[in-house]
Write a protein that binds this DNA or RNA. Structure first.
Lengths: 166, 166
DNA sequence: GTCAAGTATCTTGATATCAAGTAATTCATC
DNA sequence: GATGAATTACTTGATATCAAGATACTTGAC
């Protein structure tokens, strides 16, 4: 049983053995799978007129609970983006009437981004379909593999978030 | 032990239990880790004046063995990109003198992309550092987790490449 | 041989992202 | 309280990517 990455590692071995390409068994596989997963998810968001990142913002607001409002900085951190990117995402979402920028009463440098009623209705509809699709994708894994994978990735993420390495 | 994704799944559960966000334990973790890994790797490529995708093209040519030449379509498929994106990557790499477009003797619609001597020298230098960095990143995982992870991801990739699902 | 269908590369226009820098505000230290 | 450092959101200019379409060539069915 081989996949694309296994073939690539073998090529490196026979064509340029000065390097050890074996880390690709983990890293390249993860990155290729992520790319494909992203494409599938983004096709679903597209049906609702959203890009992946738009959903990410709306979902972060929705799951934060009432009053469904966060500062741009919190949204930026949660999404692993730069502040400029978040500004343009918010511009778009505001134009679509899904969020509203309001003054932040506690800090005049800051804003509060509010989910509008339309935004809330939309994100709930999209989220239902989104998580169904994610569950569907995971059916390619055995229950044991899925369980093991979640555990390994949790340990890895936790370590990175703690150490701050990488 | 919790990570960002565990907190997010809990938020969904308490704020909108109509959805089951548990697929995120696998999918969101993988995507977040990939994003971080990409940033780290791309910082290394940047030291050599390359973007991640540029290295990808050069590396694909190098590991294909002599005469270090492939058609644009092969490079496009291997990188999971559109043909337009590959065109502009090749424009850039040609401008840098790292690859050369030549006519394809077997198919006048097609070209052959040749790695130049400068391209070969550069990609070998970058690859050395690149794989060292990847090995370093994997030290965050125990040897058992690393082994298990590679196996699970291989089964998953293989299934996707075979089924064509997703 | 002819021609329809498929393939290969490139072009165009739109969007998403980043890095670097700006202006307003808050915080911390003296 | 005054002031320098940090923080917040935004702006700008550059690049990477995609989807859709254009053009040239090849393949296969007849």
């Amino acid at each position: 049983m081989t996949d694309h990455v296994a073939r690539v590692v073998n090529q490196w071995k026979s064509e340029y053995s000065e390097v050890d390409a074996s880390p690709m068994y983990v890293l390249a596989r993860m990155m290729r799978l992520s790319t494909q997963i992203n494409k599938t998810l983004s096709a679903n968001f597209g049906k609702f007129g959203l890009a992946t990142g738009d959903f990410d913002v709306l979902a972060t607001l929705r799951r934060s609970g009432t009053p469904y409002a966060l500062r741009p900085t919190e949204l930026t951190r949660s999404s692993m983006l730069t502040s400029g990117t978040m500004t343009s995402r918010l511009d778009k979402l505001e134009r679509l009437g899904l969020v509203r920028r309001e003054a932040n009463p506690n800090d005049r440098r800051a804003l509060m981004i509010h989910l509008t009623d339309a935004g809330r209705t939309l994100v709930e509809k999209v989220a239902g379909k989104h998580f169904e699709l994610e569950a569907e994708m995971l059916k390619a894994l055995s229950p044991e593999d899925r369980e093991a994978l979640a555990g390994i990735l949790e340990r890895w993420s936790h370590k990175l978030e703690t150490d701050g390495t990488m």
